[in-house]
Design a protein around this nucleic acid. Sequence first.
DNA 1: TGTGTAGAGTTAAGCATCGAACTTTAGGCA
DNA 2: TGCCTAAAGTTCGATGCTTAACTCTACACA
Lengths: 177, 177
Amino acid sequence: MGETDGTSPVHEPSLDEQIAVYQREFQDLDPQVEKVVSALSRLNRRMNVAYGRQTAALGISNAEWEVLKALVISGAPYRMGPSELAKQLGLTPAAMTHRIDRMTAEGLVTRERDESNRVRVIVELTDEGRSKWLDAMRAATVFEEDLLQDLSTAERGVLGDMLTRLLDRVEDLQARG
Amino acid sequence: MGETDGTSPVHEPSLDEQIAVYQREFQDLDPQVEKVVSALSRLNRRMNVAYGRQTAALGISNAEWEVLKALVISGAPYRMGPSELAKQLGLTPAAMTHRIDRMTAEGLVTRERDESNRVRVIVELTDEGRSKWLDAMRAATVFEEDLLQDLSTAERGVLGDMLTRLLDRVEDLQARG
DNA sequence: TGTGTAGAGTTAAGCATCGAACTTTAGGCA
DNA sequence: TGCCTAAAGTTCGATGCTTAACTCTACACA
């Protein structure tokens, strides 16, 4: 085909190559900082692809899995309102309405009016939804254990700690401006 | 309004609360692993929100910024084909076509046929596109430096190193299955 | 009791993305 | 030369998301 010069398929640049170019193009760049944020971004994209394959194999989407997770995390009896769900998942209420439509049709959740406050709606996990969550969770933990395989227990602790600190920091920044 | 019981606004559970519930609901969960992956996921969502605000302030979207970045990283003369771009950004060629349409209309890139191989198309960064990239980059680095503020130089190095190892690992897993 | 306001959720219209089918060009091989 | 296959990009139809407008209920306050 075209100009396959022998060794350049499509060649996504490696992290270090990417940072080297950035430094050429943008002098006051801290390569250490850039390495952290670029790795975070790439890592997350790849992880989402991996999760997507697993959930697809179970007949649900990543989007639906997010909803199942939020409901389980809310604890028994696994009920939340659409707005609350939307806030946690970073969606608009409109998107949440549609997502709940689909998941209701698939039997993963039920939707009913709150009789004690008729403006509200209660989304509740069904047994099937809970079981799907469990299946997805099992697959996810296998993958996650695999992912962290090269890190010692001590390193995992340090990593978790540092990421938590970044998370606190970003929430702080969010709150201010 | 509703049942504001005084201290539960919408209450997104903290990372530790979330993991505590997960352990109740799913016995064989490694809390250390879960903490790492959950923090990664949350962190990335928040960072994307932050980047989104910055790019919006510049009159572009995060999606467009991703394209600008890829073109700059490819190095001068800042040219790539649509498929190559699509692969790096994790999009389908169809989506890339439309995105390039929009960015061409906005003057951020140009699109022309490759005369030496008329099946191909060359997307090239314009001066305006390069300048937008620079503006976004300046804003991003300020944010990123802020984000990592609580980590020492040594810690940043360790974090970058660990994330790179995870990235290598996930690429490995991707390649296999 | 009535009115105004605010919050929860849905509906409607527009846009970005996806998967699949299609067009065009390049190159291999008879 | 002519055919066949593969690759690049676009077009088409469907899906899920966004913003904005709207409905309905609850509560505050006169």
